[in-house]
Computed example of a mutant assay.
Amino acid sequence: MEYVDYYKILGLDKTASADDIKKAYRKQARKHHPDLNPNDPEAVKLFQQINEANEVLGDPEKRKKYDQYGADWKHGEQFEEARRQQQSQGRSRGNPFGQGQGSEYYSFDGDDHDYSDFFASMFGNRGGGGGGRQTRFKGQDYRASVQLNLSDIFKTHKQTFTINDKNIRVTVPAGIEDGQEIKIAGYGAPGQHGGPNGDLYITFSIHNNTGFTRKGNDLYADQPLDLFTAVLGGEEMIDTVSGKVKLKVAPETQNGTKVRLKGKGVPVYKKEGVYGDLYVTYQVQVPKNLSEKEKELFHKLAEERQKK
């Protein structure tokens, strides 16, 4: 089983605090994001390892297991629990390791030769005509990173991805977040000795290919507004993800005025028909290249204002 040093991946030592881990993860994720390293064939794998490191070290319980068992952290405690159960059953029958009844599942991330003969014999994995039972191990979980455009997530849809040389058709829920992970049961590695397959975990990377800024389920955009419409009022065509809408502009609208378009944001994850909002900020544009006549009119306007 390949051992991945999660501390080394994040550039930390084992004394790192939770805050240190969070900061290191953000730094490494930004630096090694596949979008920023399109010519690096290892970028996706490294980005996946960075996410895994954060998932493990950022969780106090998982970090404790990782520090204790190292490469075997995912199944180390299960081995210990199985050993305790076997010993307990064995003592009741005069057998130091016990024989156990029935079969139980244990998560295991490697092949048979990755664990010691001691564990193999203790679990009854003798093979041949030895008469011992074979403990069934769950297959290794697979992890993959998939990139989508922000415009792809406004509707729930099915999409086919190639993962581990297999085409997998996945339902992508509307409103999925950047960095969000979904689990597809049974699409991992085959189990050992008749055990269940592992699972597939897909982490989604959302690339913003729109002119909007996304914050959760809300979208934000700046809208240029000519000076005359801002002063006198009028109408303005606004771009939204579902097309253009016409807004009334109140007279004497100030620069930086923010308008809320309810329900024109990103769909809320797994809540059918529920959307965030779109916030439009007016940026009043001062006219350029004024003619002499226009300058004269502005001078007259300024003089008129000074009389008040």
Results as ranks from 00 to 15, higher is better:
86 Q>F: 14
293 K>V: 09
297 L>H: 04
37 N>A: 13
205 S>A: 12
285 Q>A: 04
103 S>Q: 05
130 G>W: 05
31 K>Y: 11
163 I>L: 13
74 K>C: 07
102 G>K: 03
159 Q>R: 15
64 K>Y: 06
14 K>P: 01
63 R>V: 12
276 G>W: 03
200 L>V: 07
84 R>C: 06
231 V>Y: 13
198 G>A: 05
168 I>W: 01
151 S>Q: 08
261 L>N: 04
243 G>Q: 08
244 K>L: 09
25 Y>I: 11
13 D>A: 09
216 G>S: 06
280 V>R: 02
249 V>L: 06
75 H>Q: 07
17 S>A: 11
283 Q>P: 00
146 V>W: 02
148 L>D: 13
82 A>V: 08
89 Q>T: 06
294 E>H: 08
128 G>H: 05
29 A>D: 08
287 P>G: 04
34 P>T: 13
88 S>A: 15
199 D>K: 01
29 A>G: 06
217 N>C: 10
298 F>S: 06
306 Q>D: 01
109 D>M: 02
86 Q>T: 09
259 V>K: 09
242 S>T: 15
76 G>P: 00
234 G>P: 05
137 F>G: 04
7 Y>T: 11
111 D>E: 09
75 H>F: 15
221 A>K: 12
28 Q>W: 03
125 N>W: 01
104 E>C: 00
83 R>L: 15
66 Y>F: 14
225 L>D: 06
117 D>I: 08
265 G>Y: 07
97 F>D: 04
107 S>P: 00
235 E>L: 13
252 E>Y: 15
226 D>A: 07
205 S>M: 12
256 G>I: 10
191 G>N: 02
233 G>M: 07
191 G>Q: 02
246 K>Y: 02
149 N>T: 07
206 I>S: 05
208 N>Q: 09
123 F>P: 00
83 R>G: 12
63 R>C: 12
148 L>E: 13
102 G>I: 03
93 R>M: 09
296 E>W: 01
140 Q>N: 14
107 S>R: 08
180 Q>H: 11
